[in-house]
Amino acid sequence: MSGRQAILSKVRASLAETGDDAARRAVVEARLAKPPKGVIPARGKLPDDARVDLFETLATKFAATVERVRSPADVPKAVAAYLRAKNLPAAVRVGADKRLAAMPWDREKALEIRSGPSDGDDEAGVSHAFGGIAETGTLVMTSGKDNPSTINFLPEHHIVVVEAADIDGDMESVLAKVRKKYGRGKMPRTLNFITGPSRSGDIEQKIILGAHGPRALHIILVDG
């Protein structure tokens, strides 16, 4: 505890504060409970259809590929078709997500479904997104057995299913939903915001896709 006390005392001494100032504490607690509304870009404030279109446009701009399907039942077929088009083995890594589990995977006879977290040897993984952010074409992923975080990063190809109804205009709206689901001040172990496939510009500032994470990010957008 000595480090803690020393640092807090130094901070208070520099700020010329005592640390038991009730008024300051009240301000901080109030602000933590209810952050002021910040600047939300107008870009994402759109009617439903336009918002989903913006998500698609921006995700594509940031080098993801986006495919739209009409219902969850169309997802397995789309996954199988993607693997074929990319010349990949007919196998995917999938977590225990109930929405994914309810899809008719058995219709894709040749497709092997591997359950659980990725071990690093998967060519392709499928996740279901918590939501999406139209403002930046970003996917929002929550960790857990339903959608293990390793699937977001280890496979060469990451296929993400996101429902149009879960796409919000801006990051703050998604964060409000996270709070609602997990409880105020509580979080899943990992919340990933993913905008396009992995890349690096570290050699001569030339952008190359597929640094350590997936080389390709394919989004299957399920229209409601």
Partner: peptide
């Protein structure tokens, strides 16, 4: 970039 590719929030 509008957003970096990975923004990761880690809790515990």
């Amino acid at each position: 970039q509008d957003m970096s590719v990975y923004t990761t929030v880690s809790t515990g």
